[in-house]
Design a protein around this nucleic acid. Structure first.
Lengths: 212, 212
DNA sequence: TAGATTGTTAATCGATTAACAATC
DNA sequence: TAGATTGTTAATCGATTAACAATC
């Protein structure tokens, strides 16, 4: 076990990948070495061991890691057995897709509500609830315990939604809108910028195949 | 201008962000300094200048950057004025959402086809075309010129789709399935692992607010 | 000219990899 | 015991930031 309280973001972001692979191997293999685990994740064995050592000694020298054991321990670190709640703001096709995303609930994330600004769809059923009016978002966040606001609204609405979110005591935002949001530093913001990813990917395509 | 041929991935991944902000400022301001640009992107002025210097001198000393000029030049580097084609494999709600994502076409990405394995929806209309049978994916990729395959299929189908993609001469994959795909190293693979992002985000939430 | 801001190099910081003693 | 593999420290590598001469 090493110093806690200072685990780099980049390490935290790899934990779910370890967890996901280990979970897929439950019942298929009893043990796994850092080398084999790394191979399946396109990482290095050294990195796997280094990452895990932030949280303690999970392995057995000369043997490796017990899959079930390591899976459960990483799961606990990530809090997968705890219930957490999220709301979706923006009930377009992307918002609906997220609302129906089946995998979130497997790791403890539950949809609490969906909001939109379009009067024509407010009140419609979605994923077991009804689409709410976005004007009630702030009040909702203040009343209920919501961990994460998922923004699937258009770019021009996203900053306003982020402001309401941060102002209502919710400190987690997952943003799909193609804009860089400004939030207080105590707020955890992650972006999924689809167009950016496509552009960076296609930049590399232009260059590969040729050269060297 | 510095050495080309060795621009780090991490720099390439920031270009779309610069581009996106500059685009939003077209007509709103004539010039912008590295400091102001950085502020809006939660980056440092030094990083902005350093990144841009990989591609040449785009600014004017003592003045800053002309917004229109810089935007056009970064756009050209990213190839936004070129037409590129993608297909979607997996026509569930996420696949449909991507198929209808309005912003891709603004930067030159065009939907070429959508495939699924479910006989009940094969043939149905989607985004101006018809859903094809995934068994025809390989042939399609060999015949047509497709730059990127977007995988929105279930996890257990994703590796097979990736294999067909790589085997048919398409070298770009954007993967939404919650699995780490194995692809040849000449293939450009980017992942959007939604559950992983939620888990890493909520890990940080547990810890913030308290401590220190 | 004086003030501002770039482009670039050097210094710092952080992340990854290598190495190996510990030990199952 | 011999072989394997961890956990951890040190070495390397790469990315970010600082500094400043160039110059508009």
């Amino acid at each position: 076990m090493k110093k806690s309280g200072s685990i780099p973001d980049i390490v935290i972001e790899r934990l779910p990948r370890y967890y996901r692979y280990l979970r897929s191997q439950l019942g298929k293999q009893e043990k796994i070495s850092s080398r084999i685990l790394a191979e399946h994740l396109s990482a290095s064995a050294s990195q796997v061991r280094h990452d895990l050592s932030y949280f303690g000694g999970f392995g057995l020298q000369g043997y490796g890691y017990r899959v079930e054991d390591l899976c459960r321990k990483i799961g606990r670190i990530l809090g997968v057995e705890q219930d957490r709640y999220y709301v979706i703001v923006g009930a377009g096709s992307l918002g609906k897709a997220i609302a129906n995303y089946p995998i979130f609930s497997e790791v403890g994330f539950h949809l609490s509500a969906v909001f939109d600004r379009n009067p024509e769809i407010i009140g419609s059923p979605l994923a077991g609830g009804k689409i709410g009016d976005v004007s009630e978002l702030g009040k909702y966040l203040e009343d209920k315990s919501v961990d994460i606001v998922v923004i699937t609204a258009p770019a021009e609405a996203a900053q306003g939604i982020a402001d309401i979110t941060c102002g209502s005591g919710c400190n987690g935002i997952l943003n799909f809108a193609p804009v860089d949001l400004q939030v207080p530093e105590n707020v955890q913001l992650r972006n999924i910028h689809l167009t950016d990813m496509m552009l960076a990917l296609s930049y590399r395509l232009q260059r590969s195949g040729v050269v060297d």
